[in-house]
C-alpha cells in the first residue's frame, strides 16, 4: 500500500504509514496485556486505564494549546494514548484518581512537552511519571494484589470507590506484594529460595499474576516485531542480558538468587523489553546502538532488582539508559557503503 505524497521533492510515492498508524499498532499490541491485567487484577485495572486515557488527553490538549500547536493532527497522533496505557499498566490498579493525574501531568507536561513535545523528549514520559510517583508516594504505589490466593480481587464497585479516593481503610487488605518484592524481603530475612517458592505468590513462570501480564506483553511484542513497528535488537538484547545475568547468579547460588525464568516473567520485564525500552524517541536508532542500549537495560533491571532498593528495576533501568541513548547513538554510527575499511 502506498500513498501519493504532496511534496514537490522526490520521492513522489510514500508507504502507507504514519505516526498515528504506528501508535495505533502499539495500542493494539497492548490489548492482550490489558486483558491480562483485567484477568489478574479485576476491573480496577481497566478503570485505571480508562481514567489515564481521559486524563492524558486532557493534559495533552492543554499543553498543545499552551504551546500554540493545533489539536489536529497532534492530539490524534496516538502518542498520548500510548503514554497513558503504559503508565496505567505500571500503576497499581487501586491507586486513587489524583495519583494518576499527578503522574500524567508530570509525564506529559514536564517529561514530554517541556522538552519540545513528540519526538524531542529525552526520557520516556510514562516511566518518568511513574518513577516520579514511586519516589514521592511510595506507600500509595504499593497497592498491588493481595498475596493470599483466597482473597478475591476487588469488584467493579469497590474498584470505583478506591479510584475515587475513598475506602482507605481497605488499604491493608490489598497492599499486597509482588513476587519480586516478596522474594526480596524474604531473602533479606535470611530465608532461602527453596523455603519460599512454595508460597502462592509464585506462579508457574514467575509472579502468580504478573506472569500472565508478561506472557500477554510477549505476544503483543512479537506481533509488533512481525509488523515492523519495533525491531528485534532492543528486546532481544534486553531479555538476553537479563536472562544471562540472572542465570549466572542463579547457577552460582540457587538459594540466594532467583531463577532467570522468574525474572523474565515477573514485574514489568516483558512490557519493558517490548514496549518501553523500544520507545524509539528515547532509544538509540542505530542497530548496534540498540543492542548496547537493550543489553544495558537488561543488566540494570537485574542489578536494581537484586541489589537495589526497589523490587522492580524496569522503569529505572530504562530511564537511566534514556539519558545515555544520544551518546550511545553517537558512538555506534553504522559503517557507510564505501567508507575506508
Amino acid at each position: 500500500m502506498t500513498t501519493v505524497s504532496s511534496g514537490a521533492s522526490s520521492p513522489h510515492l510514500h508507504q502507507a504509514t504514519s505516526v498515528a498508524l504506528v501508535m495505533r499498532r502499539v495500542l493494539v499490541a497492548l490489548v492482550p496485556t490489558l486483558i491480562a491485567m483485567f484477568y489478574c487484577y479485576g476491573p480496577g485495572a481497566l478503570m485505571q486505564w480508562l481514567w489515564a486515557i481521559l486524563v492524558a488527553h486532557a493534559v495533552e490538549a492543554l499543553m498543545l494549546r499552551w504551546r500554540g500547536l493545533p489539536l489536529q493532527p497532534h492530539l490524534s497522533d496516538g502518542s498520548a494514548a500510548v503514554t497513558a496505557t503504559l503508565f496505567a499498566l505500571a500503576m497499581p490498579p487501586w491507586a486513587p484518581w489524583w495519583l494518576t493525574v499527578l503522574g500524567l501531568v508530570f509525564a506529559l507536561a514536564l517529561v514530554k512537552h517541556a522538552y519540545g513535545g513528540l519526538g524531542h523528549n529525552l526520557f520516556n514520559p510514562a516511566m518518568g511519571g511513574y518513577v516520579f510517583l514511586l519516589l514521592c508516594f511510595p506507600v500509595a504505589m504499593k497497592a498491588w494484589a493481595p498475596i493470599d490466593a483466597g482473597h478475591a480481587a476487588p469488584g467493579w464497585i469497590e474498584s470505583l470507590v478506591r479510584l475515587a479516593g475513598g475506602a482507605s481503610s481497605m488499604a491493608d487488605g490489598y497492599s499486597g506484594a509482588t513476587v519480586l518484592e516478596y522474594t526480596r524481603t524474604q531473602l533479606r530475612a535470611m530465608k532461602m529460595l527453596s523455603e519460599i517458592t512454595a508460597q502462592p505468590v509464585y506462579g508457574m513462570l514467575g509472579d502468580r499474576n504478573a506472569q500472565w501480564v508478561n506472557v500477554a506483553a510477549l505476544l503483543g511484542g512479537l506481533w509488533l516485531l512481525w509488523t515492523g513497528v519495533i525491531r528485534w535488537q532492543i528486546p532481544v538484547a534486553a531479555l538476553a542480558a537479563l536472562f544471562l545475568t540472572a542465570a549466572a547468579f542463579h547457577l552460582a547460588d540457587g538459594d540466594r538468587y532467583a531463577s532467570p525464568l522468574l525474572h523474565l516473567f515477573s514485574g514489568a520485564t516483558m512490557p519493558g523489553a517490548f514496549f518501553i525500552a523500544t520507545d524509539p524517541i528515547t532509544a538509540p536508532g542505530t542497530p548496534r546502538g540498540r543492542l548496547v542500549f537493550g543489553a544495558a537495560v537488561g543488566l540494570l533491571i537485574y542489578l536494581i532488582r537484586t541489589f537495589g532498593n526497589y523490587p522492580d528495576g524496569v522503569a529505572f533501568a530504562v530511564l537511566i539508559m534514556n539519558g545515555a541513548a544520544p551518546l550511545i547513538e553517537r558512538h555506534t554510527q553504522p559503517r557507510i557503503l564505501g567508507a575506508p575499511a
Binding site: V4, S5, S6, S79, G119, P280, I281, G285
Partner: peptide, 19 residues
C-alpha cells in the same frame, strides 16, 4: 491519484530511514 496532503509530523526517531 491527485497528491494527498500529508502534513509532516515531528520525527519520532524510529530509525527506519537508517534501516
Amino acid at each position: 491519484a491527485a497528491p494527498a496532503f500529508l502534513a509532516a509530523m515531528p520525527c519520532i526517531r524510529c530509525g527506519e530511514c537508517l534501516r
